[in-house]
Amino acid sequence: MEKRTSSSRSASSKASNAKEAALGAAYVCLALALSFLESQIPFDALVPIPGFKLGLANIVICTVFYRHSAKTALLVLICRLALSFILFSNISSFIFSLVGALLSYTSLFISKYILRSRISFIGVSVISAVFHNMGQLAAALLVTGSLSALFYMPYLVLAAVICGGATGVILCFLPRNVFFEKELKSL
């Protein structure tokens, strides 16, 4: 009798693991699709900041971090970066993206566990975008070994406030079930 209970328990945990893996893969696909979408928009012609991006993939990372877990968010983030590196970019932009993304991921802990419900997704997204850009700037400072890149700092902060604000507004108004809310509940 006892044996049967433990085997049915392990079967249900296996099913739950499989569900989680499938959900994680769906999140990676979504994040990658959004990265690809924004890579198709010629921002370089509109904004005179090198490597300017909206950061749409951050919508997925924020959602996973808040509605799922920090661990899944980190896995989705790393898979997304690795895939977009293989598909569309080169090693230097990968290093820049990695430093920026990891710093912006760290900022989510501050937003979730310190600022909690005192801010909305707009604040979460703005803080995360500012951290992301500061990470990229730090990478640029390290790679060039010169302080000249500091010239871009205020413009990067401005860009982060605008783009982070925009993605934050999207996050605020997204219908809750867009990101597999029902599937999450059944896990």
Binding site: Y66, L115, R118, G123, V124
Partner: peptide, 12 residues
């Protein structure tokens, strides 16, 4: 479950 505020706040 910790979720951010649904509406923009003063701190934002």
């Amino acid at each position: 479950k910790i979720l951010p505020n649904k509406k923009p706040t003063a701190l934002d």
